[in-house]
Structures are given as structure tokens and as C-alpha cells.
Computed example of a mutant assay.
Amino acid sequence: MTHEPYKKIALAGATGNLGSVVLKELVDSGLFEVTVLTRESSTNTFPSEVKVAKVNFESAESLTQALAGIDALVSTVATLAISTQKLLIDSAVAAGVKRIIPSEFGCDLHNPKTKALPVYAGKVEIEDYLKELSTKTNVSYTLIFNGPFLDWGLTNGLFFNFKERKVELFDGGDQPISSSRLSTVAKAVRRVLTHPPETADRAIWVKDIDVSQKQLLKLARELTPGEEWEIKQVDTAALEKESLEQLAKGDIGPLTFFNLVRRAIFAPEYGGQFKYDHNAILGIKSLKEEELPGLVRAAFNWEEIVKSATDGPYLP
């Protein structure tokens, strides 16, 4: 395995919530030659330093040609496109790509309970496939677990509904959750690419801070003095039971999978609070508790913290 940092990087999903931040991090670092993989019909524009390769994501030939000469592939495709990564991975192997970072970027899938949730079946399949390939080919991989996106989650109702002053407290709301800002995840991607040997064929855990839902709610309520909040207690075990019943019946609703994600994030036994992290190894500074009020305040002063992903939402 090479000990040299990877230079030529291909990025899939560059217009999404996370992908756009990863792209900026890679470009701004000045360390890489970045190629963005886009659909043939795409009209998105990118910085002049970025090479754009329009590909047919259903064609191995098209993908392999675009990935020729690439050192590492980073995928930040949206949740609904997770399973499509298999052809992308096969094409990367055929093109001689050395490292693949698949679209994980969320809950700890090395926790057995989380790994068993049907919502993560696609990610688990991709991880198993990469493990197998790493033993038979020259490709290596890195999985990045970063918990729910802290900034995105605040502005998109993951922790509470700030606009309507409503909150569902999951399993009491006291459980600390390891969470990361989008920019922190992007830094982790960059550091993986500059440290090939240390990050090969393994998972890494990164986080900004361990914070509970009640802590975040307290800070949000301080921004709305004198206003009443509607608080509802929710049992994530009941959410999981309901979702599994819906799946068994084939009666999939808009919250079927999202409620399983809530179970993974907020239930104490599902590994939402990481036992350890690789921040120090990757040179990532944790967010201090005294910095949280400013982060929460900024989240609700910004009109739009991140652009919506063109491929749909990304679930942790």
C-alpha cells in the first residue's frame, strides 16, 4: 500500500448537503486534483479548479473511463442512492482506484443493534462488499462514522421543530449523542485522504461534541424567552416496532425509515454516544460546550445553512 497522500480524487454526490461541503474542503486545501462525477444531464456548475466528468451512472464503461487515473473515490450520494454504489465501486476497482470512501457518514454501524435496523441494510451491504474486495483486489476502503449532522439537524428538525416551538423528546431526551458539523466531516474526509496507511480498511469515528436533546432544547428555548414550547415524550422502541410492522405488511409510510433512524440516534443502547473517536489522530478539534449557544443561535439566524441535496435528503 502506498504511504503517499492521494492526489487525484473523484467525488460523487458533490451537490448534496454533505458533498458540497466536502468539495469545498478538498478544493480549498489545495492538496488535490478533484474530479466531480455528475449525471450526463446535469447543468450544475463547479469551481474552475474542478474537473467535471459527466457520466452514465448505470454504465460500467462510462464510470470506469471517468475514473481512470484516479487515486481515491469519495461517495457522498444521498441515502436513496446508497445501493447504486456497487456499480460505482466495481468501476473504481476496474480503473485501478486505490481507496474508496463510501457514503456512510452517520450512525455507528458497528453497533450490532444499529446494524440490524432495515434502514441501514444498503450501507451494511456496501461495507461487506468493500471488505470482500479489499481481500481480493488492490483497493482499500475507509468508513467514516460521525453521528447525526449537528448543524443540518438543527435547521432541519432532527432535534426539534424550532419554527413551531415543538419538540419530541426521544427516550427522555437525556442521552448524550455524538454529533458532527458538516464541515467537521469534510475535514475528516480530507485527513483520511492524506493519511492512507493509518486509515486503510477500517472504520473511523469522528465527532464535534456529545450533546443531549435536552441540552439543545434548553439553548433553543433561551432564544424564545417567554414562549411556550409543546413537548411530547416519545419511546423509540415503539417507533421501531411500528416501523417493522409496516415493513412486514409492505405498508411503508413517510416516517417508516426515518423512525428507525431516530431509534439509532436517540436510544442509548444503539451506540449514539461513541465510546472512542479518532479526532486526535486526524487532527480534528472537538467543539467546546461553551461554543454550543453560538452554534444554535447561528443555525436559526441563517436563512439557509446548506442547500438542499439535488438527489434528495441524506439520513445519518
Rank of each mutant, 00 (worst) to 15 (best):
E4S: 09
P5L: 00
Y6N: 04
K8Y: 08
I9V: 15
A10R: 02
G13W: 04
L18Q: 11
L18Y: 04
S20P: 02
S20R: 02
L26G: 10
D28W: 14
D28K: 11
F32A: 12
E33C: 09
V34A: 06
V34M: 02
L37P: 07
P47C: 04
V50Q: 09
K54I: 15
N56M: 15
S59T: 15
S62Y: 08
T64M: 00
L67F: 12
D71V: 13
D71I: 01
V74W: 08
S75E: 09
L80T: 14
L80I: 13
I82Q: 13
Q85V: 11
K86P: 07
L88V: 09
I89C: 08
S91Y: 12
A92G: 07
A92R: 10
A95Q: 02
G96P: 12
G96A: 10
G96F: 03
V97S: 11
I101C: 12
E104R: 10
N111P: 13
P112R: 01
P112W: 00
K113V: 00
T114Y: 00
T114C: 00
A116E: 05
L117R: 02
P118N: 05
E127F: 08
D128I: 07
D128G: 01
L133A: 13
K136R: 06
N138W: 07
N138Y: 06
G147V: 08
P148E: 00
L150C: 06
L150H: 05
G153Y: 03
L154T: 06
L154M: 09
T155G: 04
G157K: 03
F159E: 04
N161I: 01
N161P: 05
K163Y: 06
R165L: 12
G173L: 07
S180Q: 09
V185R: 02
R191N: 15
V192R: 03
H195K: 14
P196F: 05
E198F: 02
D201A: 05
D208F: 11
V211A: 10
S212E: 09
Q213I: 05
K218A: 14
K218E: 15
A220Q: 08
E222P: 03
E228W: 01
E230R: 07
I231A: 03
E245K: 14
L247Q: 13
N259V: 10
A264D: 03
E269K: 10
Q273F: 01
Q273A: 11
Q273W: 00
F274C: 00
Y276C: 00
H278W: 06
K288D: 11
P293F: 10
W302D: 09
E303Y: 10
S308C: 00
T310M: 04
Y314P: 02
P316Y: 01
